[in-house]
């Protein structure tokens, strides 16, 4: 596309606006998970913009690698660190916020002014010809990767391997104590406090057999041990419907 037609313009304003919205959401959200989601929004919109600029391969790679892999990695780490972690709004460093905003706004103005002044009369060449050389955008990028940018390609592959190794080394937990053997585990289980056997599983009824449905003890009372602790703590225990129990008992012929 040598010039920007109307359709592209609409796409630009829409996706661009959403991208800016996502960026604002990133920096203004209190909870970290919300920020992650806003970022994902920005990235998807950017993928759309890539496609609009005749870079379909990059757009797909953006979705798969960035939004798919990188942001999911962020969310996993957020789970480790704590989904509830939130920042207080009070700035501890004096003047940091003000100076940062001034500088960033200044940077934006400079870049816009500088680049805008330089690109007023530029007519985009468009990538039809470049994409058509090898029969498509992917082929064109592949040709460049494996000829002009081969060394960079090899180096980045080495980088990826190194990064993976680095992550393994960093995340490795060193075992300080010897691994407990089966015998020790059994001993600990039976001589210590706590229930040595398995905990009772949740109740199975005709209409409910979910995790939050308690099992019944022999005297008819619900067993608190059959429900996972967090649910108990939150008060999400479903009350047992004794009407159903009696109904079944009567069907059963009264055998208790």
């Amino acid at each position: 596309m040598t010039e920007v037609n109307l359709g592209e313009e609409i796409v630009f304003w829409f996706s661009g606006g959403l991208a800016v919205l996502g960026a604002l959401g990133l920096i203004l959200s209190r909870k970290a998970v919300h920020s992650a989601l806003w970022v994902a929004l920005t990235m998807i919109n950017l993928a759309v913009l890539y496609v609009a600029n005749s870079a379909p391969f990059l757009g797909m790679v953006q979705v798969v690698v960035y939004t798919g892999a990188v942001m999911m990695l962020f969310l996993f780490v957020l789970m480790v660190v704590g989904v509830d972690s939130s920042d207080s709004l009070i700035e501890t460093l004096k003047g940091q916020r003000l100076v940062a905003i001034v500088l960033a706004v200044g940077l934006a103005i400079l870049l816009v002014a500088g680049i805008g002044a330089g690109l007023t009369d530029v007519v985009p060449v468009g990538l039809d010809e470049a994409n058509g050389v090898d029969g498509g955008n992917v082929q064109g990028i592949a040709r460049l990767l494996f000829t002009d940018y081969l060394v960079a390609f090899e180096v980045t592959s080495a980088l990826l391997i190194t990064a993976a190794l680095g992550a393994m080394v960093l995340a490795h937990r060193e075992r300080w104590l010897p691994r407990a053997s089966q015998e020790e585990l059994s001993k600990a289980r039976f001589t210590g406090t706590g229930h040595p056997g398995n905990l009772p599983s949740s109740g199975t009824y005709a209409r409910h057999n979910a995790v939050d449905t308690p099992a019944l003890l022999p005297d008819g009372s619900p067993s608190a041990q059959s429900i996972p602790g967090p649910l108990v703590a939150r008060g999400d225990v479903r009350p047992v419907d004794h009407h159903d129990v009696e109904q079944i008992e009567s069907l059963d012929g009264g055998s208790k």
Binding site: L111, I115, T120, P124
Partner: peptide, 18 residues
């Protein structure tokens, strides 16, 4: 529309990231 708009959008996103 000027294709430079993409660059302006990039500059704005960059500043917001900063």
């Amino acid at each position: 529309m000027n294709p430079a708009n993409y660059i302006i959008l990039s500059a704005i996103l960059f500043s917001l990231g900063a």
